[in-house]
Amino acid sequence: MANKKAFGGLKGREIMVLGIIAIMAILFSILSPTFRTYPTLVSVLDNSYYITLMALGVTFPLITGGVDLSIGTGLVSYALIGGYLIVHQNVPVAVGILACIGIGLLIGLFNGALVALMDLPPFLATLCTCMITRGLGPALCGGFGVSWPSAIAEAGAFRKIFKFTTATGTVIPVGIISMIVLVIIMSFVLDHTRVGRYTIAIGSNKEATRLAGVNIKFYHVLAYVISGFFAGLAGVAYAATYATIYPGSGAGFELDAIGGAIVGGVSATGGVGTIFGSFLGVIVICLMKVGLPFIGLQANWQQIFTGIVLIAAVLIDVVKKKE
């Protein structure tokens, strides 16, 4: 098991990604005077919350050697349904949030059943649920966009979990605290509990794990349930950070999270990866999303550049394996 490491100790890959983050931050700061300001830092963090949550979850299916493509359209769908319940059915915000997470959990369970019990290839199974979730939200909510209560409304208090504005107008990105806590908890789950160990074992050698007497079906399903649960949380974070949830959007969000995880050292073929690495990878992605426009790179070039960075990250993996 390549994933063994002392708790709190950093692996080489994580140190490398930290280095990339530092270099990018310095580069953007030199190239754009407006980048090195406090509001930009807040904006990078705002951008990172929903992607971080998706990445924390999707790391589990990735490590089993699978993937979960349904998280992007899923999170939009869950946020849409939650928001619809709050705005149009007048349920309390807390119930809307629970619905958002609950539906995510159910879709995760469905993904897990398709992959682990019915042996569908993960790519296909979650591509199908990606389509289902894309239609599900609009279908249940009459097809229209919905805005969760705004920060100034009393019901918008949940937004303060992610961004707190003091009486003097200073914005504090408190969401990062929740993210760090979740990263620590999920790191512990992956590295020090049976759930984590078996997730890695399934990705390393499924047959051997089964022969060792592990109920691999259960743990395999669980990996997708975790992914779905975090997609639900990501839906809440997305609704809290931005104004209106648009039906039909969300396709491609999953790639930011999966890309982040892979940059952070999760192997695309399974068996290897850390939660902290995924988190750092997401920060790289978010730095690029915010930084590239700030240095004046226009839309098309931003996408080209992001693609190249991802290739570089995967190449490092391939080269390492050959060694």
């Binding site: 705002d46 951008n47 950070t241 931005y242 104004a243 209106t244 648009y246 959007s249 491609g252 969000f253 999303k289 590239l292 426009p293 226009q298 839309a299 098309n300 931003q302 996408q303």
Partner: peptide, 9 residues
């Protein structure tokens, strides 16, 4: 012009 038509970009 954002690279994709998403609210964050």
């Amino acid at each position: 012009v954002p690279a994709q038509t998403t609210v964050d970009l």
